[in-house]
């Protein structure tokens, strides 16, 4: 397993550090660059146009609840096909009014993934062309992938508690 950062990534990291004062974290040869929410559109545009990161592989978020500043990290995983490189951008977002600008104008793929952010994390995406829920039905309360959303465990039926649960289970009628 390769343990250090790819040499070809060094100029890219340097450019990101000087232009956006991004901070760098490295783990198992993966490069994570932290940028501010207002810089993300420019940062992605730069990476796509100057450094051939044509593909936005993944766009997701992590919830660090109960920590609130920052509560979320929004993650942009980029891939360069031409140079065979990967880089990850992380945008810390605070918990009180989580907000990131839309990147659909840079990568069209972000459209659905950002709708997923809106739906599953309740992170507002400013300027999104179609900010509806994507996976959960309309009218669902809460955002499932937040840590304070309960998993929704129901007690399974076994022999010893079969009758008790049977009584309260909402069986459908004809």
């Amino acid at each position: 397993m390769v343990k250090t950062m790819d040499k070809k990534l060094e100029p890219i990291v340097k450019a990101m550090q000087s232009k956006f004062s991004a901070t760098l974290e490295e783990f198992r040869a993966e490069v994570h660059l932290f940028v501010k929410p207002e810089q993300i559109v420019d940062a992605l545009t730069l990476l796509r146009d100057e450094y051939n990161f044509e593909l936005l592989s993944a766009l997701t978020a992590v919830d660090y609840h109960p920590q609130s500043t920052p509560r979320f990290h929004v993650i942009y995983q980029l891939t360069s096909l031409a140079k065979n490189l990967s880089v990850q951008l992380r945008v810390p977002v605070n918990g009180d009014s989580p907000k990131v600008p839309t990147v659909t104008r840079v990568y069209a793929m972000a459209n659905w993934r950002e709708r997923e952010l809106i739906d599953m994390f309740g992170i507002e995406v400013e300027g999104h062309p179609d900010p509806r829920r994507i996976l959960m039905p309309d009218g669902t309360e809460g955002h499932p992938l937040r840590k304070d959303f309960p998993l929704g465990y129901e007690e399974p039926q076994f022999t010893f508690n079969f009758d008790e649960i049977d009584l309260r289970k909402p069986y459908a009628k004809e």
């Binding site: 959960m136 959303f149 998993l151 929704g152 129901e154 289970k169 459908a172």
Partner: peptide, 20 residues
């Protein structure tokens, strides 16, 4: 039949809650 491995918010714990 009973929700299987997915005991969570998204799945009906058995389709008998929806149809007989």
């Amino acid at each position: 039949s009973c929700g299987g491995v997915f005991n969570n918010y998204a799945i009906y714990q058995g389709v008998d809650e929806v149809v007989p």
